[in-house]
Amino acid sequence: MEITGSLSVLGAGFAFGVGAIGPAIGIGMIGAKTIESMARQPEMAGRLQTTMFIALALAEAIALFGFVLAFVLMGQ
């Protein structure tokens, strides 16, 4: 098999793939801890959910930077 394409495509793949590892772990921990807290204090579920979404959004943004960077690299 012949290998074609430029290294920037490889870089784009890495930018998104490796960049998504950290946020994925973070989002998993946020979800797990929120469920734990909700089970412990069901009356707080509403407020916990709001806070969870904020934390989730902050973690997710980092993964999406990788996604945008991948497209920038693809265009090189």
């Binding site: 959004a57 902050l58 997710e60 943004a61 999406l64 930077f65 996604f67 945008v68």
Partner: peptide, 12 residues
């Protein structure tokens, strides 16, 4: 972050 999050989610 506010703009990239919304854009990237919709685009992706």
């Amino acid at each position: 972050t506010l703009s990239v999050r919304l854009f990237a989610n919709m685009y992706a």
